[in-house]
Design a protein around this nucleic acid. Structure first.
Lengths: 129, 129
DNA sequence: CGGAATCCGATCTGATACTG
DNA sequence: CAGTATCAGATCGGATTCCG
């Protein structure tokens, strides 16, 4: 398993350059629903419907799409049990679990700053009007 | 300055619930370009054009839109100097700076996992085809 | 239960042109 | 320099329907 030499090289050529492929990945994991799904999943293993209940406000379509994307990127693993009715379980892969701390921090940041940001928005909008 | 009691309450009712307003905020800061702009800005103060050069691949329009959003949310501050030609400087607000560690970690994670994710995608697509 | 497929309005985004 | 305005193509995302 090639563990590529991390951000050392990048850090030397330019202090803050990001490859366009990294941007692509940021787009995926930065997605509102992806963050939310990773956060809710945590260390657990959940079925589709359980996830849907956990990720409040997500539509079935978006949950499907989001999970497919995360699975494709190797962040979420999907296990299908060949029974009737179908049983499908989702959990984070080891790689996905390495995101957990950061995502948790981000989600908690958002939650902790709801009021201040709401306030900032109101102030900004008032200034514009 | 009201420093609202953080995630304690939330953590007790349900282990992983996120308010819909927090989701809204996640949507903003999780945005690919927002993350990127925050990352590039860092502790610096940069002009519009400098930012545009730093955030590789962003269009002028998206930089404008992104900055407006971040400014509205109180994450970025915008200073206009009434000179000709115009001079506008952007920097993170104190609140924005509290995001820096997390955003940096996320961006570096993406950068460090480009290869593995690319590989996972190829494997996934091959399985499907 | 866990989707896939389709439709369709809403939103996003790049390109281009113009401006104080 | 630092935008705004506008338009057209692309994408998103919810609602609905159907299926093994």
């Amino acid at each position: 398993m090639a563990r590529p030499a991390p951000s050392e090289a990048r850090a030397q050529e330019s202090p803050h350059s990001v490859s366009c492929r990294a941007r692509d990945i940021l787009g995926r994991i930065g997605d509102k629903w992806s963050l939310y799904v990773i956060f809710v999943l945590g260390e657990q293993t959940l079925r589709f419907t359980e996830l849907k209940r956990g990720v409040e406000g997500i539509s079935q379509r978006m949950l499907t799409v989001t999970l497919r994307g995360l699975e494709r990127d190797g962040i979420v693993s999907r296990t299908v049990y060949p029974v009737v009715p179908p049983r499908v379980e989702y959990s984070l892969t080891p790689m996905g679990r390495t995101l957990l701390d950061t995502v948790g921090t981000l989600v908690r940041w958002a939650d902790d700053h709801v009021e201040r940001i709401q306030h900032a928005r109101t102030a900004y909008d008032a200034r514009e009007a």
